[in-house]
Design a binder for these strands. Sequence first.
RNA 1: GGCCCCGUCGUCUAGAGGUUAGGACACAGGUCUUUCACACCUGUAACACGGGUUCGAAUCCCGUCGGGGUCGCCA
Length: 527
Amino acid sequence: MFRSRSAARPSMSVRTRFAPSPTGFLHIGGVRTALFNWLLARHHGGRFILRIDDTDQQRHVDRAVSLILDGFRWLGMDWDEGPEVGGEHGPYFQSQRGQLYQDAVQKLMAAGVVYRDYSTEAERAADKAAAEAEKRAYRFRRKPLTNAQLSQYEAEGRPFALRFEVPPGRTLVLDDQIKGRVEMKTDEVSDFVIVRPDGSPLYNFASVVDDAEMRITHVVRAEEHLSNTFPQLLLFEALGYPLPTFAHVPYVAAPGSKKKLSKRDGAVGLHEFINDGYLPEGMLNYLARLGWSYDDSSEIFSKAELIEKFTLDRVNSSPASHDPDKLYWIQGEWMKTADLDRKVRLTAPYIHHADAWTAYDRGRKDRKEYPASAEDQEILPFLREPAEVSDAEADRFKAVIEALGDRLKLASDIVKLARYFFTEELTYDPDAVKKRLKKEGVPEILADIEALLAEVEPFDLATLEDRIKSYAESRGEGIGKVVNAVRVATTGQGVGPGLYDCLVILGRESCIRRIAQTRRMLAESSS
RNA sequence: GGCCCCGUCGUCUAGAGGUUAGGACACAGGUCUUUCACACCUGUAACACGGGUUCGAAUCCCGUCGGGGUCGCCA
């Protein structure tokens, strides 16, 4: 495939931007595009700008903007100019940049490249229908108007949109950093509206004015904008703006498919991964590797390494599918690097709100429509504030987390993996009960172990291991049978940390109580 | 339908005329082991198809098929 060589602006400082429309929802595909912009800027020591594309007035919602900003903050993608931080090229909301657009309109009118379009929606609809019937593309072209008509329209104050008059017979060339050289004949480009009758600018126009006025040097955006680029090229030219470098990033496909990833494909919103307890490092690493590679073997990259190594020429020109398995694996690799204190802070909220978490998790899996509600786009309330953990509680968390080791991949995993350490209420996994407890001799073994635990001294790892092993030996029983029976009897679960770790953390009294309870349960179910 | 983009294991990718087509995730088997996870070893698995060009094609050209985008007074 064709790849352009690096951009021809070594002396100019790189400025990139991400321009979301304020819906509040951060699709991971969009986040990846933002990440590429951010990495490119940081790699070159340039600036990353955030701009809110809210030309469609009613779409501007404050909450939505803060949701977006929170997502960026969570990932550690800081912006040099934009909402909250300001900057020299503001304002950073399109809805507040009216004057800039008006000035640009004046320039275009003076240059004679725009005209008033008095067409009605009905007329355009008819033309479109006709084009479709003839199986050809719909292209708007200027309709000749007599002077009499014109002055009549003006006199009656008929509303008009402003359209750019696309010059015929030219070939537009785009040297895209990801897609390579792409050409488009102007005859394929419709005369496009730049300003609505109410004076508000349209995306293709506003975006060019903003990118130019904000001195954006590299426009890195979703592939769906590739064909938008050609009318934009015409605007850059007519306005006398220098052309930025363009790079169009392929879309993210659904898992195991080449179809574009959509909300129907499960978790696609950044907030969902935050809710699951993914680490920003893991998310960043995964997203960067989705469509980008450094060499033939590197997979794990820290933020600093990404900044150092990211270049556009290593971005793939074909779509990549989202791979939740790989994300989970990368996350696991990063979780291994988190220290104990951080893991405590990360996991505590899930234990403190285990029921709320379970309900959320289950509800999400059951839902048919997405999003089920507005709250569905939010970060879980108990994750928004730092968890309060007393010293004593922290000690227990530390013991549990150490025992869990690499089993803990997601912060929320603590609920399914270790909830029994934090509640005396035993919940049995039916499969584990069947496999480990409904066996010949298990009631006797449990009775013996219960007695053993009551008198073993000291109640520590080495002694427990020693005593239980010799017990199994004396009974002529495989150690596995004893260990697994005791595991299920004390934790209710078939899997977990090493048994002796579990026993020590639980403590003598709790172990005895649990085994007694399990023995009663077994006795009842067998009678 | 017109125009434009894309097509290497199931997935992420390496690959820029000559490779036993490499790595990773997932999967399968094994070692370790009290379960699971980790670690380690092994294995299954790909150049969409068809024509060219060339001594030689995953790499270049054309076509077909498939996927995507766009054809808005949405962004």
